[in-house]
Design a protein around this nucleic acid. Structure first.
Lengths: 193, 193
DNA sequence: TTATTTAGGGAATGAGCAATACAAAAAACA
DNA sequence: TGTTTTTTGTATTGCTCATTCCCTAAATAA
């Protein structure tokens, strides 16, 4: 193949972009920030992403969706997916303060994009709905295997869990404290057992 | 008193500012937006608010805090404050789509300010903690009067409610739909009865 | 009436922004 | 070696932003 070889790959750019978008959000992240953190010049940047900042953001959250898909695969092969989900929630309590402040990039995006960009909001909302569906399936399975006693419709409980996830996204900023969070997580998980 | 009389009062400016901050968030709202919506020129604006955009935002969310304080007063005079709180949650389901998209300006601010402005984040977090405390007190009262059976520590249940409030802030954007929301709200409220 | 004081409106400023233009660099090909 | 193709880095564009400056308007006090 002819031409100067690519120095900054899409994947590398998106990964670095994701980090800073996660930390600062969409609006507060400037293209200058992206160039600085990736080391690319604006030539390479716009050559790689014709859609500019918005395209990178979309790809950054789609990469996060990919990470979720892989978690889901592990779940599908597990005998008790709900236990993995519960442990995932518990693991949130162990994060450091910086991570608590960052929160969930998807949940953050739903809030930020509400009146900024309808397309990107839908993108984020759909990812949350996929996560919700994963919760719902895991709960249905647990009910079938009688490993939980709560007889409530799994759709309601799945929606309960995604609501908790989004609420936790703010709670961990209010109380970036291991003990408080773990206590609260256990209480909320106890509802579906 | 000497001098030209005030045309644009603080209160009027803050009220109008609150509306647009609520809709668009801090970063996405420009001072130009504020001038346009208030009808004031930049001269009056900076004459009234030496601290510029940031000062207006602080005052806008403090005005929201005031509205909350008044709700709390009604609660304090009520025999069953928890019922009022529950009905407040239920009333959220009745809002129109535009209102769902706006969500709670305080919860939104906690997310936006996390890596943007520490002072303003603390301001918002503190308001959420006050709301949480109101929840806690109402639950304690309900337990004392034996109007609910759940024996869990009221602090945990108060924190459960504020977590739900923040989660609902995103859920209503995912499902800006009366039936879905009401269903979910009832399920979550049933936990503390 | 005139001086004084305060607010208002809008132009001007300077910084930062997203995006483009363009020429040099680095590879493949003939 | 010289041509073609693609990426890269930088300079530049045109725009928007928050804020300041300054002159005018509108009131009171002397």
């Amino acid at each position: 193949m002819k031409g100067r070889p690519v120095l900054h790959t899409d994947k590398h750019l998106i990964e670095k972009a994701q980090e800073i978008f996660w930390k600062k959000g969409y609006t507060a992240t400037s293209v200058g920030d992206l160039l600085q953190v990736t080391g690319a010049g604006s030539g390479s940047f716009y050559n790689t992403f014709k859609g500019g900042k918005k395209e990178v953001f979309r790809k950054a959250i789609l990469q996060r969706r990919q990470a979720f898909e892989e978690f889901k695969k592990v779940l599908d092969e597990s005998g008790s997916p709900l236990d993995l989900i519960k442990n995932f929630f518990r693991s949130i309590a162990q994060a450091d303060e910086e991570t608590h402040l960052k929160g969930c990039i998807i949940a953050n995006s739903v809030v930020e994009m509400a009146h900024l960009d309808n397309d990107l909001e839908m993108e984020a909302v759909n990812i949350l709905k996929e996560v919700e569906q994963m919760f719902t399936e895991a709960i249905r399975k647990a009910q079938d295997f009688k490993s939980i006693n709560n007889p409530t419709d799994p759709e309601i409980l799945g929606r309960y869990l995604i609501t908790f996830w989004c609420g936790l996204n703010t709670l961990r900023r209010m109380y970036p404290d291991r003990k408080t969070l773990l206590h609260q997580i256990e209480m909320q998980l106890a509802v579906i057992s």
